[in-house]
Amino acid sequence: MFLIPDPIVRFFHRMASPPHFYALTERLMPWLVVIFLLLLAAGLYGGLYLAPPDYQQGDSYRIIYIHVPSAWMSLFIYVVMAVAGGIGLVWRIKLAEIVAVSSAPVGAGFTFIALVTGSLWGKPMWGTWWVWDARLTSELILLFLYLGVIGLYGAIDDKRTASKAVAILALVGVVNIPIIHYSVEWWNTLHQGPTVTKMDKPSIHVSMLIPLLLMALAFKFYYLIAMLQRARIELLSRERNAYWVKSMISLGAER
């Protein structure tokens, strides 16, 4: 590859090599967990204890500290999954395929959390668990897209082929992402508009905003932890006949 300096090319080749990646995730894991727990503790303390009750919603608004970061993650992870899937599709990089497919269960988890906590927030505030509002419906479709990705991957035995199929599904589903994001502006229904991403003047007080951002950052680290754990088992089971896996097992490194 011309234009790209040699050390950088070497770095990417090393990164994309399965044994190197496996060892790296093992070394990174404790650090990721520590950072996640610190951010989580700070976010929960700020959100559940320090922040004042809302002047209209009382203490029920505290669901925001998991609802909004989960909803953000559900979109963020979908985009990561589609991009990684696309990279795997074009350049056939095994690791990109693995990142794509390992992201799906984590994204599905966050989508589920966003829907359930939204429902638990909607009941006392809107008086209903569910409405077929544009935001809620498009988020539900996102959950089905994630489940479709997981199911499709599991249904095809050859994992290289499965990755291709999954990447195409994920890329087609990207059309849903802007629909979810703009749904509250395009259709004026029950779900409220954005509070935080009005960057010029967020309509939320700093004492409420800071814990929210801490939780969002904590969830980013959680995603890395959970996705990498999926990637590790995925990598092992795909490479079960490779020398590095066999020698690791015969050395008794049952980690």
């Binding site: 029920s60 505290r62 906590t117």
Partner: peptide
């Protein structure tokens, strides 16, 4: 503030 069920279930 009376919303214990909704908050803690979430």
């Amino acid at each position: 503030g009376g919303y214990a069920f909704y908050v803690w279930t979430s």
